[in-house]
Write a protein that binds this DNA or RNA. Structure first.
Lengths: 198, 198
DNA sequence: ATGCTTGTTGGACGAACGTACAACAAGTGC
DNA sequence: GCACTTGTTGTACGTTCGTCCAACAAGCAT
């Protein structure tokens, strides 16, 4: 009489990612308050003890979740830029506007961001991770701005400004979805690009 | 032999505020993860059971803390605007710039905001509270913009844009204090005002 | 087949959590 | 002074938390 295996032995990376994705779902559903080792293990369909074999604790798992989700966001942004064709301004518009469309502008994504932000102040290595991600986003924007002909000396401030505007619009869009629409957010961001590029 | 009272019977509002301020300090020190009934009661110098007499739970206390801190922020913004004199543009500049100076741009304040944001998605009454606060901030900005001569039809988008830019700059300033300076944030915000009003 | 490595389980443990409640005492009205 | 109200205390209860670890078994090497 053949009995099916009690569990499956997964590739380390595969199990890691399945835990990260379970963490993403728990954060999206229950927020940072519901993100416990037990809840995430149950969501992933594994025993609670397994989480400790892959992550030092909830904080490390949240940091890995942020990195993973952020990489996925970058894929969406890449696709938007590349789908916009060769015109530099069109590529910049696509990059900026993509943040406001589904599935990027959603409360589920915001939950991961908030969980990550809540760790920045107390965990130096997480603060560093945030600094790097933020700097990378800004650098990417500087390149797109350079392609549009913005002089090198003005790129830094312009990139900081656009990043802040996009972050602020995205945040409010997630928190108060009916205060203004994604289309309005896009129009506002494009107007600022017009003003900056002149 | 006279012995001092074991505790003091406080005015209801006074005790409420002392609990709220204790909550503010705990959030600033330990973040949302350390904000427990016991920790806040200890910080306020009262017994744990007393928190339940004033607030239904941690969520209600965090919401009250947010409202209280936000009122204090408005006092600072008021002072900045009134201290700027009669010139409409100077008043607008002061309003926008005040967010980047101490003590408004600080990780301690951010901790309260993050704790509040983490409740917006799951608690409808807290979502409403956020909507109202956000709308009030935006309305205030619209009045200041109107005083600068911005046509009524353009005030809404301008207010949304400025709010988002200020929020984004403030957020990054709190999370990554060395990515750019408060003076740079002010300069960026003023440049956007120039573009909008010019 | 057999043994070895190690991913995985599941429960035990102490700590901390929110909540509830009986006892106490500070302040007030009489 | 005395009784009454109620703000306040302190504790006990059940739950859930993170962590730990001995036992188990899946998959690979031989």
């Amino acid at each position: 009489m053949s009995q099916k295996p009690a569990f499956r032995r997964a590739e380390p990376d595969e199990r890691r990612i399945s835990l990260i994705e379970a963490s993403t779902r728990v954060l999206a559903r229950d927020g940072v308050a519901g993100a416990s080792v037990r809840a995430i293990a149950q969501e992933a369909g594994v025993s609670p003890g397994l989480v400790g074999h892959y992550f030092a604790g909830i904080d490390a798992l949240v940091a890995a979740t942020y990195a993973h989700v952020e990489a996925r966001v970058n894929v969406v942004l890449d696709a938007a830029v590349n789908g916009a064709g060769p015109d530099p301004r069109a590529r910049l518009d696509a990059f900026v506007t993509a943040s406001f469309s589904t599935p990027l502008a959603s409360g589920e994504l915001l939950a991961t961001w908030i969980a990550f932000w809540s760790l920045v102040r107390s965990r130096p290595e997480i603060a560093r991770q945030h600094d790097e991600q933020y700097a990378a986003f800004r650098m990417r924007l500087e390149h797109l701005l350079g392609a549009c002909g913005l002089p090198a000396g003005r790129r830094r401030h312009a990139a900081i400004a656009i990043t802040a505007l996009v972050d602020g619009l995205w945040l409010e869009l997630c928190l108060s979805p009916h205060a203004f629409s994604a289309a309005e957010a896009s129009a506002i961001a494009r107007a600022m690009l017009d003003a900056l590029l002149g």
